[in-house]
Simulated scan of single mutants.
Amino acid sequence: MKLKISFPENCISEIIIEQKFIPCLCKISNNFEIEFKVPLQPAIGIVFDWDIELIDERVPAGTGGQYLHYANGEISIVHISDDMYQILDLNIFYPSSGWCPVMKDGDYAHLMNELYDE
């Protein structure tokens, strides 16, 4: 998955981008948006190269409303070009199941039942 986002050009943005597991808000419907809020540099980006079926296998879908998924998350990204970033890690939090890994080390995370089958 890739994130297209424009961060303000300042040293705070550079420091935050280099951090692992940055707090964010994940909003998924026909599009997949990642939003960063204060105390971070406020910005909203669009995720590309994502698969709703693979995400649904890893996190519970919401009920009703504008979004299939609308939840807090944590993300690790690496800059690849201009305003484009590779998503390395993405976890989404749901009160009923805690932190759900979606991406790990640049790939979709293993499903819990796959871990037990190994």
Score class of each variant (00 low, 15 high):
residue 72 N to Q: 15
residue 62 G to C: 12
residue 113 N to E: 06
residue 64 G to W: 07
residue 86 Q to K: 14
residue 8 P to R: 12
residue 37 K to P: 04
residue 7 F to S: 07
residue 4 K to S: 10
residue 62 G to L: 14
residue 25 L to Y: 06
residue 41 Q to F: 05
residue 42 P to E: 12
residue 34 I to W: 01
residue 75 I to D: 01
residue 108 Y to P: 01
residue 16 I to V: 15
residue 26 C to K: 01
residue 25 L to S: 04
residue 2 K to Q: 13
residue 45 G to T: 07
residue 114 E to T: 05
residue 33 E to I: 09
residue 95 P to F: 03
residue 96 S to Q: 10
residue 74 E to L: 12
residue 53 E to D: 14
residue 19 Q to L: 15
residue 92 I to S: 03
residue 88 L to M: 08
residue 85 Y to F: 14
residue 40 L to Q: 13
residue 91 N to G: 04
residue 33 E to D: 11
residue 96 S to R: 08
residue 35 E to I: 12
residue 48 F to S: 07
residue 48 F to D: 07
residue 63 T to D: 11
residue 52 I to E: 05
residue 30 N to L: 11
residue 3 L to I: 06
residue 103 M to A: 00
residue 69 H to Q: 06
residue 15 I to T: 14
residue 85 Y to K: 00
residue 38 V to D: 12
residue 100 C to A: 11
residue 16 I to Q: 09
residue 77 I to Y: 03
residue 60 P to F: 09
residue 5 I to K: 05
residue 53 E to L: 13
residue 71 A to V: 02
residue 14 E to C: 10
residue 59 V to I: 15
residue 45 G to A: 13
residue 94 Y to D: 01
residue 58 R to F: 10
residue 18 E to T: 03
residue 75 I to T: 02
residue 31 N to W: 10
residue 108 Y to A: 05
residue 70 Y to T: 04
residue 118 E to Y: 07
residue 8 P to Y: 12
residue 44 I to A: 11
residue 63 T to Y: 13
residue 28 I to A: 04
residue 62 G to P: 07
residue 59 V to E: 01
residue 71 A to K: 04
residue 61 A to F: 12
residue 64 G to S: 06
residue 65 G to W: 12
residue 2 K to F: 12
residue 21 F to E: 03
residue 2 K to H: 14
residue 23 P to C: 12
residue 67 Y to R: 04
residue 114 E to L: 06
residue 33 E to C: 08
residue 79 H to K: 12
residue 55 I to Y: 00
residue 115 L to K: 04
residue 23 P to R: 06
residue 70 Y to F: 15
residue 91 N to F: 02
residue 46 I to G: 02
residue 70 Y to R: 05
residue 57 E to I: 02
residue 57 E to G: 01
residue 64 G to M: 06
residue 75 I to Y: 00
residue 67 Y to E: 07
residue 94 Y to T: 03
residue 40 L to R: 07
residue 97 S to M: 05
residue 118 E to N: 05
